[in-house]
Amino acid sequence: MLVVKDLNAYYGKSHILQGVNFDVKQGEIVSILGRNGVGRSTTCKAIMGDVEPHGSVMFKGEEIVGKKPHEIAHMGLGYVPENRDIFPTLSVRQNLMLGMKEAGKEGVWKIDDLFDRFPNLKERAENDAGVLSGGEQQMLTMGRTLMGNPELVMIDEPTEGLAPKIVEQVGELLEEIAARGVSILLVEQKLTIALKIAHRVFVMGHGHMVFEGTPDELRANDKIREEWLEV
């Protein structure tokens, strides 16, 4: 469903992505792991067209390099950024409403379902989203992207800085997303959730992939883990 071939991206003169190759199949959960600064977020942004991509990105059989971010989103690709980027001056409900691509058009995901799932958000539905805790903000950003009915969602470090209890909730939501047939590209640094739910994992080195395999294969591969993952 998503095939990335020889993807390159730059910030000014620095060459950040140096030929990234990977793919996500329909209904699959794929995780990209790697240390800080190797270019995982840049990969997501380049795919979304937020950072200028060079190379090829096929989504549902169509080349999306050169398309604008909003066009890519409309094709069914969703992105949950790592810094969460909630709209702080809008209410929780308004944030969710902006996730819908057309006014008042809920799809598979409904605001009320989400509120049932996360009573904290429901309680603060009319409050400014800026006052939410880190965990609540994470749920809100994921919920917001889901309101747009993505067929594939790229989620960038959803568990960063969250308490173990919340991390667990994030994991559950990810599983539910997958259960509804949405493909997931999960960018992570910690292995816990990724190895538990992913079908395949990629390890990113400096600007390109250095490993591809199943979670079991990664567990068995001490060399890759030592060289590219453990701090």
Binding site: L98, K101, G148
Partner: peptide, 14 residues
């Protein structure tokens, strides 16, 4: 506050 996030949600910001 967040123009690029808004466009990645599918809104034509330009």
């Amino acid at each position: 506050t967040h123009p690029s996030m808004v466009s990645m949600l599918g809104h034509n910001v330009p």
